[in-house]
Design a protein around this nucleic acid. Sequence first.
DNA 1: TGCGCTCTCTTAAGCGCTTAAGTACCGTAG
DNA 2: CTACGGTACTTAAGCGCTTAAGAGAGCGCA
Lengths: 380, 380
Amino acid sequence: MSERPRTRRTTVYDVAQEAGVSIASVSFAFRRPEQLSDATRERVLEAARRLGYAPSASARGLARGRTGILGLHAFDLMLERAHEPEARVRALRDLHSPDLEGPRTIAWTETDDELLADPRAFPLYVDEVQRGFALECWVMGRPVMLSSGSDNDVSVADTAGRVDGLAIFPSEGSAAALSRFSSSIPIVLFSAAPAADGHHRVRVDNTGGMREIMAHLLDVHGVRSFAFVGRLDSWDGEERFAQYRESLIQAGLAPEDEPVDATVRGPDRMAEQLHALAAAGRMPRALVCSTDQNALAAMDVVRELGFRVPDDVIVTGFDGILAGRLSTPALTTVRQPMEAMGRAAARILAGTAGPLPEDGSPFDAVFAPALFVRASCGCG
Amino acid sequence: MSERPRTRRTTVYDVAQEAGVSIASVSFAFRRPEQLSDATRERVLEAARRLGYAPSASARGLARGRTGILGLHAFDLMLERAHEPEARVRALRDLHSPDLEGPRTIAWTETDDELLADPRAFPLYVDEVQRGFALECWVMGRPVMLSSGSDNDVSVADTAGRVDGLAIFPSEGSAAALSRFSSSIPIVLFSAAPAADGHHRVRVDNTGGMREIMAHLLDVHGVRSFAFVGRLDSWDGEERFAQYRESLIQAGLAPEDEPVDATVRGPDRMAEQLHALAAAGRMPRALVCSTDQNALAAMDVVRELGFRVPDDVIVTGFDGILAGRLSTPALTTVRQPMEAMGRAAARILAGTAGPLPEDGSPFDAVFAPALFVRASCGCG
DNA sequence: TGCGCTCTCTTAAGCGCTTAAGTACCGTAG
DNA sequence: CTACGGTACTTAAGCGCTTAAGAGAGCGCA
């Protein structure tokens, strides 16, 4: 441990003794100041200040039955991110090994900088949503708890036990684990399948967004050969792929049955598949990607294969993260109102989101995205 | 309220009854699995799963004497940010007024997008530090609590009562309020004055960083007329201004006594002062700014006055935020290893930062910054 | 057969608050 | 002088866990 022996925490008992009152009066001094005479209240507060009294949130939470905290949970956020720019993993380990000691200067290299300030690693979709969530909580005067963990029951239960309400970026198998808790605390799932589990939903209109992208490519650019890059392991991915296919069918084109697999974890199959398409001389005119991250990765691969973007191959994204605005060419995409979605989740959990639907069903807040036409499709 | 009547929280008693064991066994099933027979443990866990049991963190925290959470607190972060791009304030209010209701689509305008995705508002210095802090906590398997509030005693005490350790971006008057708690929980202050209060410090080498900037301007560009833009309301500001003056004196130049005041709250006096300098025909060759945010604001004003950057006036920053890389011209600045600093704070609080200095004094981790020469000084 | 040991599980005492209910006191009305 | 109501404060019972200490069963061994 890095800490010297600490003095026992100051409690209500200490303050009560110091101020010559009962512990109830100490509690009242903070929670119901109007119930005490000015003199007593001041005496108590002064004693508390003198003793460095910090009321135990655990005790308060236990007595009151709620913690006052709203939580935002992401499954394995760390791992997902650690794997992406492969170098990140190294960075994490390195920071673990050298012990910090005493007052000393910690050197820092440019390599680290390039790594740490990479907009392709931060801020991503979750970061912007998280920011909205946190801002809204602060406006309400509530602290926020951010957690990340695997989607096993224990981890989820543990998180659920710490908060009055929980917003979650769900993972593939987590829905079942989550529904279990929505009877005791409100749960908001971002971009999750409709469920009879009683949890609320905050999501973007994937169908509308994808329809806009496809309309732009079909009508403005007259594209007739497509491929979809992404995964079907999330509700967002499924909806986007479904509308992609729908749009092609409407246009009289035959969509493929499977997307080009763009996993961000494990071996990258996307490059392999794009290479295969190129080798077969069947590289499509447009790559419609499920996310901006997928799109940026796809652009790299496509260029590696000797194609120019957008001249030879058009690439589009989905989400509207900062990195897509900064890339060359800038990414044509559909932007989600991420901060607003985070805020909405917080308000739903806090119970300040307005009346529930009449029929007693949970909230299902669907946000409209906005098309941003930029250079990666040949416009702008 | 937005919530339907919720069922009472499931407790150890419920699980114990369901599984036909004592409450101690329920606790052991989670905390000391090896002390139970496989059969019993499974029976308990199954019952817990069936009942949707989420152990109360409040009760656990009370019984154990610690919460397991590390906290990061910023004073009035909201206000500070709300004031900066004036429009943000409006954005916040607007999001409060319209009630979300039932399943419905929430429209979203381009105006909002331009506002919300502005890199000059996010990510800033605190965001990058916060990210490092959160990542490190997650690596350790701990949740993070983020809070923001005024620097009155009650707010600080309240936050301190929720966590096992607290990292803080201090405000001007908060030091006194904070030192009071460092005897009961470890406290890390970012960029704070040395203090005998027993709190730890994580900071950047302001002196070294400013010396590098000044050497570059003096030696490479031969600048002989300067002004410093910033505030002296923080330790960082003080140190940077002090070294700025020192460098000028070393170069045989006479520094001014007061910086150009670049407040981000309340009326902006910087524009006024720069206008005055320009009117007097005394606009300096280089504006050395205390932060990147100050520098970006200064560039706006300088250009408004008809000067070109860097041709007429050189502008430099400090921090290395993303917005400075994206501005035109890109900002010559000194970059702090913000993520690493956030990580260091988390490790110090968790007690995994290595042994304390022999003499029992707290940690004082000083990070070396790195000079990034870009276009705003005429290089790059 | 009895003793001690291990393994498994239970009993029960808190942890530090909040709060309903109770008490003491004072001023005023009857 | 008593009755009464209001104010200011105290008493004491939890809230749902953790954990030290204890109990009981089963086992090996003398």
